[in-house]
Design a protein around this nucleic acid. Sequence first.
DNA 1: AAGTGGTCTAGACCACTCA
DNA 2: GAGTGGTCTAGACCACTTG
Lengths: 245, 245
Amino acid sequence: MVTDPMMTASRFSTRPLYLQVRDALAARIATGDWQPGAAIPNEGDLAREFGVSSGTMRKALDLLESERLLTRRQGRGTFVNDQTSDELAERYSNIRAQGGEHISGDFQILDVSEGVANDAECTRLSVREHERVCRVRRLRLCHGKPFMSEHISMPASLFPGLAKRGEFPHRITILAQEFGVLLGKGQERISIDTASPEIAEALRLAPGTPVLMLDRLIHTLDGRPAEWRLGRCHCADKFYLAEFN
Amino acid sequence: MVTDPMMTASRFSTRPLYLQVRDALAARIATGDWQPGAAIPNEGDLAREFGVSSGTMRKALDLLESERLLTRRQGRGTFVNDQTSDELAERYSNIRAQGGEHISGDFQILDVSEGVANDAECTRLSVREHERVCRVRRLRLCHGKPFMSEHISMPASLFPGLAKRGEFPHRITILAQEFGVLLGKGQERISIDTASPEIAEALRLAPGTPVLMLDRLIHTLDGRPAEWRLGRCHCADKFYLAEFN
DNA sequence: AAGTGGTCTAGACCACTCA
DNA sequence: GAGTGGTCTAGACCACTTG
């Protein structure tokens, strides 16, 4: 049965069918129509529902799997990924402990607020001058000791009402899943900074100590900036891990 | 016409056909049977030559394109990538100038040698204790001024006779293409180091100046370590760019 | 107009998982 | 043994590039 409005126009659109199907399926995941962890119908049923061949449906599902929205297991079925799972939530966390393992530390929220975007935020988040952003300042701890200061800005339009909540999840992947935002590519600019008096105090360092400056931008799946983070990291026994193909 | 020895066994192997076809095509590129920049036969002809369907051939070609060995252009044809082209040669170079553009500087070779792998090289390059490695030490310059010291080690088995040559190409991608080595994934560990007296002198810094330490490992397409580079980088007006999906 | 890669179809059969 | 995803086939038609 064809129910999606998208399908009615599909045969007249120049956009490839498998991309239209992918968008429709992604929307079901974003809206929570298909819940994290749930199994979705098999390929054949989906193909019939959308009125496309199984090959086309397969190509759409392949794409969604590469975008980390689905996991397919031969003989078992296709499942909606839970972005709060350890494996997926660590997706954008590239600081590692000496041995290469992820750091399972705690966070300390310093401040959550909302306001009009400043110049830097307008540039990095590609928002207009009068648009509002949500800001978070926090410390990341390892064994109770702070090692990283984070200044985070997000377009308020993507996460409405976030600043008014008391709670704030540790990871952007969890926040995004709550708000029905699908995340995609990220990039991070890494350089050396020296700790300002404020940073030095927060990280319990001597002022002027060199720290890693991590300027990270995470986009939504469709390419809009979703989170800008400025981190200053004292990583004496840690390193940043970059992987590329 | 079926000529590849691989094909004779294909129907009895459990390895998927499209992967066997990919391997055979990759071998033609590695050996130089198909030259960089050259056009290869169209999908239909290739499918017929290998005795597979066009869909299977297509899947193999898709893979090779994602591995950056081929480029396909609708209406024109399929071409072997030239790894010495600017775009591809910069693949593993993540240091950027202020504006984000690649750095088109020069190199100064300090030393090229070959010897038995030391402990660190055995670990990082996964070679056995008695195996030989080729070593290069060099400086990278920007506007004539050195900004990065590099210590490079490569398994001598992958690049036989390299240490005895006077010439040494600037980029690992170019070297690999010369020696018929296909490159794949890379990873880089980034941390802060302070310049030793030797590094400080080479980079014309005060000893103890903080520098970015870049510990990079590049693998072959089939996953064997191909190059280990230890870089120390004074990047006052530069940054390291990490991108992830 | 001829040739190329890109999309799409409608199946068949295989490998794997689980009740 | 029933159900799932993974592989493979043999086409058709479309979009794009070039002579």
